[in-house]
Computed example of a mutant assay.
Amino acid sequence: MRSKKVILPVMYVLAYLLTFYVVIQYLIYKPSQAGMVSAKLQDASFPYAVWKLFFYPHILLGVAALLIGAYQLTNRSRRNPVLHKRLGRVYGIAILINVLVVPYIALYATGGTPSTIAFLVLDVFWLVTTVEGIRSIWSKKVLRHRQWMLRSYAITFVFVTFRIVLAAEQLLLPDMPFSLAFPIGVYVSIALNLAVTEWYLGQRRHHTGHSAKGVV
């Protein structure tokens, strides 16, 4: 499908760019040197030492899911069932652990309570889509598994989309407070990613239907 040939390379580029940024910003430098984190440190009650214990797993597991998920979507991955299965397990475990970490991170999200709620909503979407994908393959429903894991990766890719949407908000609406920009950015990213995913799945069903009609 032409759409896949366009979407996948774009996803790869964005995923690797974000990974490069995360490595530079949070592993080579300190999280405290990031603008949004340094702002949190202005609050004397912010538990930075404990927060880091949750933040690093969140970032590292998120990047792992982002990169593994991108590879899992390729035909090359499916041509190696053993590797596909092993990487799929790593992807699922990375997300399920991250789902447990996110609520604590969300408590200290930039933007206050509205942002906390938005990130918890994102966490629920992440959990539901991933669990449905896992349940489907356990039930040997391969097509359903692929559909739900694609939705799961759409939520994983919010890791990328959110930063693009937030940058666009800051550019177009520079006076918008973070208490609005952050939650709106999360909701828009979820909606956008899932909309593209459902469009792609619809295109695939349409293409498959036409191919089947052409078989004599």
Rank of each mutant, 00 (worst) to 15 (best):
L172I: 00
A34M: 12
H207L: 12
S38N: 10
V22E: 13
E132L: 15
I97L: 09
G35L: 01
Y48E: 03
V50E: 13
F182E: 06
P103K: 12
P31A: 02
K30P: 11
P103W: 07
S136L: 06
K5Q: 12
V196P: 02
Y108L: 05
H58A: 07
V124F: 01
T197M: 01
G62W: 01
N193K: 04
Y26L: 07
H58G: 10
T74F: 08
V37I: 03
I95P: 03
L143T: 07
I24T: 14
S115L: 10
Q147N: 11
V13G: 12
D123F: 10
A106K: 10
R204W: 10
V23M: 00
I93E: 07
Y21G: 10
L122P: 00
I105D: 12
K141S: 10
K5I: 08
P177Y: 00
V158S: 02
G35N: 07
G185F: 00
F119G: 03
K213F: 15
S139Y: 13
D123G: 04
I59Q: 06
R144C: 15
P47T: 08
K4P: 08
L87Q: 05
V102E: 01
F159S: 05
F119D: 01
L173M: 06
T19G: 10
Y200S: 15
A39M: 04
G92F: 12
H207A: 13
N193L: 02
V160S: 09
P174E: 02
E132T: 13
L120A: 11
V23S: 06
T113M: 13
I28H: 10
I95D: 05
R76W: 13
L14C: 01
S152A: 01
S211C: 12
K52N: 09
I24V: 13
R79N: 15
L194N: 02
V124K: 01
V142S: 08
K140Q: 07
S38G: 06
V188L: 02
L201K: 03
T156Q: 02
R76T: 14
F20E: 12
H84Y: 02
